[in-house]
């Protein structure tokens, strides 16, 4: 009987240790900063013409748009190619209601006079999809250099 009690105490202590560690892990997890210089997954920078005409390049946040629209709305109905930078978008087309202009017309979303909301990237940022697997696996050192780490 005495032996059994001891065993119970031992188990209790192990459980307690486990609990302490798990609590520590949960609490510390909330304070860990992941990576301070990384764009959101799927953010696309479009710099087909912007730099040349002295505008900031465009940042297209996929996450923001897919909360509101399914992929098929832009990539099927509106004819956006899947490849970043693969669409010959310009402001004339947008004002005519093509591409971004199908929504950014003051009816579905805010209209084109709010230049800075789209043209918001640091000048010189090349056209690319940020945080892509390719960017991370193939050229992680370049990406780190570019982000100044």
């Amino acid at each position: 009987m005495k032996k059994k009690m001891k065993l119970h105490r031992l188990v209790d202590r192990t459980d307690l240790k486990l609990l302490v560690w798990m609590t520590f892990a949960l609490v510390s997890g909330a304070f860990v900063t992941v990576d301070v210089t990384r764009a959101e997954y799927g953010d696309v920078v479009i710099n087909n013409y912007s730099d040349d005409v002295g505008m900031r390049p465009v940042i297209f946040p996929h996450w923001f748009h897919r909360v509101r629209f399914r992929c098929k709305v832009c990539h099927a109905d509106l004819g956006f190619q899947l490849k970043a930078g693969g669409n010959d978008i310009n402001m004339v087309k947008i004002i005519e209601g093509q591409y971004c202009g199908a929504c950014h017309n003051g009816e579905i979303a805010w209209s084109v006079e709010h230049c800075n909301l789209c043209h918001s990237a640091t000048p010189g940022t090349p056209t690319q999809v940020h945080e892509s697997t390719l960017q991370k696996l193939v050229a992680p050192s370049d990406a780190r250099k570019a982000s100044g780490k």
Binding site: L26, A39, N116, S120, A121, A146
Partner: peptide, 24 residues
Amino acid sequence: DSRQWTSLEKDGIHDQENPALQVM
């Protein structure tokens, strides 16, 4: 939930001098 997302000020692509950064 220990998920963290980078703020637009620190994400490395948004221009810090863009006045519209505050409303995004």
